[in-house]
Design a protein around this nucleic acid. Structure first.
Length: 418
RNA sequence: GGAGGCGUGGCCGAGUGGUUUAAGGCGCUCGCCUGGAAAGCGGGUUGGGGGAAACCCCUCGGAGGUUCGAAUCCUCUCGCCUCCGCCA
């Protein structure tokens, strides 16, 4: 969330930003409610001051009791109104998105800019390509039928080379980002409702893409960003050095897409992900964002996966993101004739998330300030696997593993022979 | 899952209904003292909100409640500890 005062003092800016993001927020109503809230707050405080003074005074107890009861009922009435107005204002407040970096193009998803390419060129095949499902089932790396039987559509088993490939990818990614100063962290896969909201995810409700546990105040996490940032909720952190985490967790998403979009492991309900999170001073955030993007590019260059980098348009940014880059890998069998598919996403959330989660640090003057938070995907396991098996397939159905993964795979898995 | 104990400012720790506007100590910090320092003495030292200011409101793990008045009493909840059960 943005600072309340800042919103009220920069209404034009906020309104323009909301429009650029293609959102609609009842900003006028928010302003009205905030005015009413402030007026009521002052009244409540005045009554409280009077009641406090009375309680401390030396007046006879009978007198205190009579006057006090009166004040109390007045306070109760005003307080009830205040709470209502507050709740209404807060509801709108939560929907006001972060500001947007001037570098982010206006408009919707189709306006995102293709700003860079990876080092690996798109390969031209002189034989008909097979999709990852066919290839992986042939090599007994993947069992979709068993996943569906045991947990439903959208779940899967990685077997043999598939299981080892997940471990190799995550370990390779962790090793790479550890060199850049990221501390490996294995986080809980479940999180309380309150932190879910703080991180900007809605635990329940229609558009929710997350799983909520019945009878528990818990949710399956959609990304370890939630648990990594949540780790420091309500804390004053030391940011003389930025906090850099390489999180490893399972991620769960209940997205209810159907049909061919859900075939295979491109879109699933559970996957393993190595995620980067940075908590730093706001003035350092942009530099860290560029580092996150660089690390992502290094990982996929090393894995020899062709990709493009997108500067995400304002209309496609999450509410917390000030700026976002996606990497999209080339997947030769996607949508029949090959297509780009998102494999990473890195967002600069500036102080938006920290304000909700109350993560602060002391600046040079000793004043408490909100921290900036950033996140970026290192490896979200399923999609890179799609890219690797489809891009590295041979005419006979063999799959050659990227050299970068060789140290993480037994030698007999370096080439999966047909 | 069952039984019990505990949770107070940066830290230690007092406080079971009304000069507690949270005692006292440690730490930190400013000033005095000093050639300089230590000791000593005096002041400051949670955070959030409102107000032009004086000042006011909220904050003793969290949320409610009782009361004219709550750190203190009640309910729920979270966390930590001990014992039992279960378990890898």
């Amino acid at each position: 969330m943005l600072d309340r005062k800042f919103i009220l003092e920069n209404l034009d800016l906020i309104q323009t930003n909301i429009a650029n993001r293609g959102m609609s927020v009842r900003l006028d109503e928010f302003v009205r409610l905030e005015g009413a809230r402030k007026a009521l707050l002052q009244q409540v405080e005045a009554v409280r001051a009077e009641a406090n003074a009375l309680a401390k005074s030396a007046a006879p107890v009978e007198e205190k009791r009579a006057q006090g009861q009166q004040l109390k009922s007045r306070e109760a009435t005003l307080n009830e109104q205040l709470k209502q107005v507050e709740a209404q204002a807060h509801e709108i407040y939560l929907t006001i998105p972060n500001l947007t970096d001037p570098a982010s193009p206006a408009g919707g998803e189709e306006c995102s800019l293709d700003i860079a390419r990876g080092k690996t060129p798109i390969r031209q095949f002189d034989f008909p390509v097979q999709d990852h499902i066919t290839l992986m089932e042939k090599h007994r790396m993947l069992n979709l039928a068993a996943g569906a039987k045991v947990a439903g559509s959208g779940f899967y088993y990685f077997t043999g080379a598939g299981a080892l490939l997940e471990l190799a990818l995550t370990r390779f990614a962790l090793d790479h980002i550890m060199k850049a100063g990221y501390t490996p962290v294995i986080t809980p896969d479940l999180v309380r409702d309150s932190l879910m909201v703080g991180a900007g995810f809605v635990p329940r409700g229609n558009e929710s893409n997350t799983y909520h546990l019945e009878d528990h105040d818990l949710n399956l996490i959609a990304t370890s960003e939630i648990t990594l940032v949540g780790m420091h909720a309500d804390e004053v952190v030391d940011l003389s050095q930025p906090i850099k985490y390489a999180g490893l967790s399972h991620c769960f998403r209940s997205e209810r897409a159907h049909g061919s979009a859900t075939r295979g492991i491109y879109r699933v309900h559970q996957f393993t992900k190595a995620e980067m999170v940075v908590i730093c001073k706001p003035e350092e955030a942009e530099a860290h964002h560029l580092e996150l993007r660089r690390l992502e590019q290094e990982i996929y260059d090393a894995l020899e996966i062709p990709y493009r980098v997108l500067e995400i348009a304002a209309g496609d940014l999450g509410a917390a993101a000030y700026r976002k880059f996606d990497l999209e890998a080339w997947m030769p069998a996607r949508n029949g004739t090959g297509d780009w598919g998102e494999i990473t996403s890195t967002s600069n959330c500036t102080e938006f998330q920290a304000r909700r989660l109350n993560i602060r640090y002391r600046d040079e003057a000793g004043k408490l300030q909100y921290a900036a938070t950033l996140n970026g995907t290192a490896v979200s396991v399923c999609r890179p696997i799609v890219a690797i098996v489809e891009n590295n397939q041979q005419a006979d159905g063999s799959i050659i593993m990227p050299k970068a993964l060789q140290p993480y795979l037994p030698e007999q898995y370096w080439v999966l022979k047909a």
